[in-house]
């Protein structure tokens, strides 16, 4: 059936089966592989995206249920070559090691700071408590988010890293499960 939604500001329409999960629609149909998936069982939070500004686990939302909604993924965080302050914070404070949990962590952080620009460490820890990081021990993630809170306009000294080569082919073909 037809699935229409806004992804990172762009209207997209694709055909897909109702059973396609939002995470696979984003990755396999749109080629936006920045959204990761791990557990498949709504436990790890790796697949977190923003739906109408609210963090949700995209492995537990059907793409058809997201139809008509506004989705934001990690690919939509930087604008015009400038990283989101949250992304800068993760660079400044070493908020990642392997990077697997990072897209979801940064999106939750973005949603939190939009609501509460100066959260306490405790509020940050609560906000990310549905997301698992096996590398950092969370301390640097909390510091990264605090960096972003302290630099709401980012820092002009931080340069955008060279864009990664396009690896994913945005397929227009139907995904079947």
């Amino acid at each position: 059936m037809q699935i229409t939604m806004t992804v990172n500001g762009d209207a997209v329409t694709r055909e897909g089966e109702p059973r396609v999960l939002l995470v696979h629609f984003l990755r396999d149909v749109l080629g936006l592989t920045g959204t990761h998936w791990g557990c498949d069982t709504s436990n790890c939070g790796l697949c977190t995206v923003l739906m109408d500004g609210v963090p949700v686990k995209s492995c537990t939302v059907l793409a058809v249920m997201a139809s008509g909604h506004d989705i934001r993924t990690v690919e939509g965080m930087a604008s015009g070559g400038t990283l989101d302050p949250v992304q800068q914070g993760f660079m400044e404070e070493h908020g990642l090691q392997c990077g697997f949990c990072t897209p979801g962590m940064m999106l939750t952080a973005r949603a939190l700071l939009d609501k509460d620009p100066h959260p306490t460490d405790e509020v940050i820890r609560e906000a990310i408590s549905g997301q698992i990081c096996r590398c950092t021990g969370y301390a640097t993630i909390v510091r990264s988010i605090q960096w972003a809170a302290a630099h709401p306009a980012g820092s002009s000294q931080v340069e955008t890293p060279a864009a990664e080569p396009e690896t994913a082919e945005p397929e227009t073909a139907e995904v079947s499960a």
Partner: peptide, 9 residues
């Protein structure tokens, strides 16, 4: 109950 992400839905 669950975690903040589950509670959003």
């Amino acid at each position: 109950i669950a975690d903040p992400l589950v509670r959003n839905r």
